[in-house]
Amino acid sequence: MSPDLLLLIGKATLDTLRMVAIAGFIGALIGLPIGIFLATSGKGELFPAPNVNRAVGLVVNATRSTPFIILVVAIIPFTRLVTGTSIGTKAAIVPLTIATIPFFARLVEAAIRDVDRGLIEAARAMGATPMQIVFKVLLAEARPALTLALTMTIVSLIGYSAMVGAVGGGGLGDLGIRYGYQRFRPDVMLIVVIVLIVLVQIVQSAGDRLARGFDKRGRKT
């Protein structure tokens, strides 16, 4: 394997990591409150706003049902507005983030909804404010599930990031398409696939381990 190729793979891996890290971070930061809102704003819940809840749910569904590659192209004007360009790794981060927000939000919603309703009632009976219930009860109790949700989001992001090569996004996916497929280099393709598998594996096991550490439900004396 030539040093040039190694360099290419190294740069592509870094690009992928950068895209995933930034899109994952911003996406989770915005997706988390949206997910909490979705889980707590139904009728008779902590922050009852059923109409807003439905509206937000609709937007989330719309974004999630748009195929990622179409989302990338469709929001090019917005991408240009934010980053000043519509091609390259930096530009790719915008659609990746946009796709992450609703994905993570739905997972957060499910994780929060999974918290025992009895705990919410107990907290209310203690005189907790809705905000205190969110921070001291819901987020604390959902922490293992939220960790797994974030893990799943990052793994999906790694997959999505392979598609942004279409707008010159760079990264491992782009490398695989351009060298492995278009230049008939099965060796490059193989390496790209292996690196992706390793990345996903690392993220998944780290996430699982972290979630297990947070989960105090299964312990026995």
């Binding site: 009895g118 009632e121 107990a122 009976a125 005189g127 604390a140 109790e141 105090k216």
Partner: peptide, 22 residues
């Protein structure tokens, strides 16, 4: 006012409702 009242009234439950994370 309700929150203040609730802080002066304790409550226990059939299924305990303890936080598993604490």
């Amino acid at each position: 006012g309700l929150r203040e009242l609730r802080r002066s009234v304790g409550m226990i439950f059939q299924h305990f409702n303890l936080l598993s994370s604490r």
